[in-house]
């Protein structure tokens, strides 16, 4: 069996094309999202401990810390879950996830559309959907 071998070409020789930048962007946004999720888990454990919050509710909160995600949970008071801090965390996670996601969708679709013109159309549609959905998402986060 062939062993995978690391390629150690320095960045100066590799060049910084748009694809390389987006490759780094995908990894960087993934790491940023792990940070947001960790903050969500710690927050849910701290705020939900008194109510014996279950693991599924903790995960639902950590993956998007919006107060509507704990409305059906057995909580005495929803006020701590609807603070500006949590709205900022939710906003950060949402913007990071949606920009990571729109690029991910484009990468997948590029594999199925080989013509340059088709790819441009697909990219345009994805960006338009992103620009339409992102403000709606931010509105939902800040008004819920």
């Amino acid at each position: 069996m062939n062993q995978a071998k690391a390629r150690n070409l320095p960045l100066s020789k590799r060049g910084m094309s748009f694809e390389t930048v987006m490759w780094v962007f995908t990894r960087a946004t993934a790491l940023l999202m792990y940070g947001f999720i960790l903050v969500g888990i710690v927050g849910a454990l701290m705020m939900g401990a008194a109510n014996d919050m279950n693991f599924a509710d903790i995960l639902r909160w950590a993956l998007m810390p919006n107060v509507s995600h704990v409305e059906n949970t057995n909580l005495a008071d929803l006020a701590p879950w609807a603070t500006t801090f949590w709205k900022l965390v939710a906003m950060g996670l949402f913007v990071t996830a949606s920009s990571h996601g729109v690029h991910g969708v484009i990468v997948v679709l590029d594999d199925y559309f080989a013509k340059h013109s088709h790819r441009q159309i697909i990219r345009g549609i994805c960006v338009i959907i992103f620009l339409a959905v992102a403000p709606a998402g931010l509105y939902v986060i800040w008004t819920s």
Partner: peptide
């Protein structure tokens, strides 16, 4: 990834 993109898009629009 594709599933999440579809889910989040629909969920956001539905909530809106």
């Amino acid at each position: 990834g594709i599933g999440m993109a579809l889910f989040i898009t629909l969920h956001v629009l539905a909530s809106f």
